[in-house]
Nucleic acid binder design. Structure first.
Length: 558
RNA sequence: GGCCCCAUCGUCUAGUGGUUUAGGACACCGCCCUUUCACGGCGGCGACACGGGUUCGAAUCCCGUUGGGGUCACCA
């Protein structure tokens, strides 16, 4: 029954380069990668750019970059650093460069009477479609072109009259054998004669996919369940062309918490809602003009260019939900953690840890080793940012070393926050050690050590009152005594600093809190910071003493 | 609307006819630890959508109902 493990497996991920890679695509790619990798097969990448208007080379590069960052590395396909290449000679991997391959297959289909040219314009078809819709009927192409005598059809086509080519749908049921869903039957007549070559000479998705998968030897097609309706078309095409039918596995969809399908539009939706809620009427930053902004605000379905949307969100101080892989990277999720979480959406290894808990944290290697089709779920799953965040936090706080965290943070800062990187300079490792236990995503780390990034402390009134001034300036008195002690700490490092203060407290018969909190307020302005030792070490002795002195000057009533 | 898919705690899930008073994780609540915050430890709350079958026995198999979702382009 389970023919899904047959060797060798060749899988592919075939995005259309119309924007950034979003998490749904990333999960599909991850599964394709894991499946091939786990059984010594090949994972290939193909760019589906047959839509001239929407495709861009920029978007294609962006997707390669996202995939590479995730660690979803392709064996064959477009070059990207060490990735890609064409060892078997099955390329090129951009469909726009393969038009002659499609035309050859198409000629064969026409020859055998399984495809035919049709001359209706898009407008004519749209009118027919609308008429059917208004009559509450399902529209299917009416095969009007078949009324034209075959010879005439072909000669008009050869003469260069504008036309599309349609596939003559089979008159029998088509059964899709899916590894996740089982057998799904589509009745004869459900398929209409869909277009396989557009008027511009490019193949449609259905045709290009089928031809390429055969040419590239693809054995397993893993893709989102939204493709299930397309599959009978592909199977019918494969049968008509005499191709093998690969193993199909349709992956469950990924939803938003509100049960809608996760899509790129969600970011616009969220930002728009924020703007409306705060009654913003102008763009608030110079990137777009007011008219564009208002039009976008009014049309609930419209989208701003990615960069403009991000700039707008930043300007109004709103963080839109992460949707694209790039969004998660920017927020500071670690790539293998994102993969780990994504893998759990619709799949799980079904293994227990020694303590009886489910195995749900794992490495890319483990995933490649364990991933298989029978354990893919059937029902859609909601994307839970809380859980993803918890995974990322656990990785940073409990599994990473200070050094590894410092490196990850440095890389992130280099890409997204150079200002903080240069302010930190040499202190980055110390800051990282102080921030790690309080950081869930890289973006939060700087805030944890903010006190060390500013020149002058801004005092929080409540903190000052409660910790320094209360009980007749009890806190300030402690500070006065503590300053000389700090002065004497030789190696100004967290452990030594804490030991000295602890010793002092014991000597004075005070609880540690009586010393730690005043110090904290004096050097950070507030009551919350990393451990006292780390806080002071990060500041450095000179800065700590200067801040202490200033604090005493500001608050001691002479 | 046609066609198709799905249905276990709020969420992700384990469970493949008896080992189940349904297990884990995230979230939430309480307690403990504690120099703040965070981490951590312990405990708690909490689900088989409904109705019929099949069977000695059903979360697990079948049918129906309800609910959710996908898809209906010269986009992919």
């Amino acid at each position: 029954m389970d023919n899904t493990t047959a060797l060798p497996a060749i899988t592919r991920f075939a995005p259309s380069p119309t924007g950034h890679l979003h998490v749904g695509g990333a999960r599909t790619a991850l599964f394709c990668w894991a499946f091939a990798k786990g059984r010594g097969g090949r994972f290939l990448l193909r760019i589906e750019d047959t839509d001239q208007k929407r495709s861009s080379e920029d978007a294609a590069r962006g997707i390669l970059e996202d995939l590479a960052w995730l660690g979803v590395h392709w064996d064959e396909g477009p070059g990207h650093g060490k990735l890609g290449g064409d060892p078997r000679g099955v390329g090129p991997f951009h469909q726009a460069d393969r038009v002659d391959v499609y035309n050859a297959a198409l000629a064969e289909l026409i020859e055998r009477g399984r495809a035919y040219p049709a001359f209706e314009t898009a407008e004519e078809l749209e009118a027919k479609r609308k008429a059917a819709q208004d009559a509450n009927q399902t529209y299917r192409y009416d095969r009007a072109a078949l009324d034209i005598p075959e010879e005439e059809r072909l000669s008009r086509m050869l003469a260069g009259e504008p036309h599309v080519v349609r596939f003559l749908a089979p008159d029998h049921d088509v059964v899709v054998a899916d590894s996740v869903l089982g057998e799904v039957r589509f009745a004869a007549g459900e398929l209409d004669d869909f277009v396989i070559r557009k008027a511009d000479g490019f193949p449609t998705y259905h045709f290009a996919v089928v031809v390429d998968d055969e040419a590239m030897g693809v054995t397993h097609v893993l893709r989102g369940q939204e493709h299930l309706q397309n599959t009978p078309r592909h199977v019918a095409l494969q049968q008509a062309l005499g191709y093998r039918t690969p193993v199909f596995a349709h992956l469950p969809l990924i939803f938003n918490p509100d049960n809608s399908k996760m899509s790129k539009r969600d970011k616009d939706k969220a930002v728009r809602a924020f703007c409306i809620e705060h009654k913003l009427t102008a763009p608030a930053w110079g990137g777009i003009d007011t008219a564009t902004f208002e039009a976008w605000l009014r049309d609930k379905r419209s989208q701003l260019p990615t960069d403009d949307l991000r700039a707008l969100a930043e300007a109004i101080g709103f963080v839109p939900p992460e949707i694209d892989v790039e969004d998660f990277r920017r927020s500071g999720y670690l790539p293998h953690v994102l993969c780990n979480y994504l893998a759990l959406l619709g799949w799980n290894p079904g293994e227990k840890n020694d303590d009886g808990t489910n195995v749900e944290r794992f490495t890319m290697e483990y995933l490649a080793d364990k991933f298989d089709l029978p354990r893919i779920g059937k029902s859609a799953s909601k994307f839970d940012r809380e859980k993803l965040m918890a995974f990322n936090a656990d990785e940073i706080q409990n599994r990473m070393t200070d050094a590894a965290f410092a490196e990850a943070w440095r890389a992130w800062l280099e890409r997204y926050d150079r200002a903080t990187l240069s302010t930190l300079g040499e202190r980055l490792p110390i800051a990282a050690a102080a921030a790690r236990q309080r950081t869930r995503i890289l973006r939060e780390a700087a805030a944890v050590v903010r006190f060390a990034l500013v020149g002058e402390v801004k005092f929080d009134e409540k903190a000052v009152e409660k910790v320094l001034l209360k009980n007749g300036g009890e806190g300030l008195a402690v500070l006065r005594d503590l300053a000389p002690l700090i002065e004497t700490v030789e190696h100004f490092e967290a452990g030594a600093i804490e030991a000295a203060i602890q010793h002092w407290c014991e000597h004075k018969g005070l609880g540690m809190g009586k010393a730690a909190q005043p110090l904290r307020v004096a050097v950070t302005g507030g009551t919350v910071s990393p451990g006292l030792g780390q806080t002071l070490e990060l500041l450095g002795k000179a800065s700590v003493l200067a801040r202490l002195e200033r604090c005493l000057n500001v608050f001691v009533v002479h």
